[in-house]
């Protein structure tokens, strides 16, 4: 724990709380990955980790290093922006791939392709 002794208590408390909250959300998301029943339900589980989970941990990291180095350390924002932009893309692509495969195999529980009808 290098440097942690220098961290004042008013900063240590929110950093600790944010760390635990973020890690807990990551854990809940992964538990959902195990517990939920089928693939389309499981797609929802990791969004917990990739929205607030990693967001809380990045906030904790920003606060920790900004207070320790007494200057704003903001490069965590890069990971935030990157994760916020890429997670929806991967999940969408993955869900579409799963849907395409299920349709091809004639899975009965997935909706058919769009009819292309004009309203």
């Amino acid at each position: 724990m290098s440097g942690a002794e220098d961290l004042p208590l008013w900063a240590a408390l929110p950093v600790a709380a944010l760390l635990i909250a973020g890690a807990a959300l990551g854990l809940i998301g992964s538990i959902g990955l195990v517990r939920l029943r089928d693939f389309y339900e499981r797609v929802h589980a990791p969004t917990l980790a990739t929205t607030l989970g990693i967001g809380f941990i990045l906030l904790a990291s920003m606060l920790h290093f900004s207070v320790l180095q007494s200057r704003p350390v903001l490069h965590e924002l890069l990971i935030t922006a990157f994760v916020v932009i890429t997670t929806p893309v991967t999940l969408m692509v993955l869900a579409r791939a799963a849907l395409t495969r299920d349709r091809r195999e004639g899975e009965p529980n997935v909706p058919p392709a769009g009819t292309g009808r004009q309203p």
């Binding site: 389309y40 929802h44 917990l48 929806p88 969408m92 869900a95 849907l99 769009g114 292309g116």
Partner: peptide, 19 residues
């Protein structure tokens, strides 16, 4: 699409441009 997928509980799956 990004908003819906980023909020847990909903996932955008497909878009049909024709209809």
């Amino acid at each position: 699409a990004c908003i819906l997928t980023a909020t847990p509980g909903t996932v955008w799956v497909d878009y049909d441009a024709r209809d």
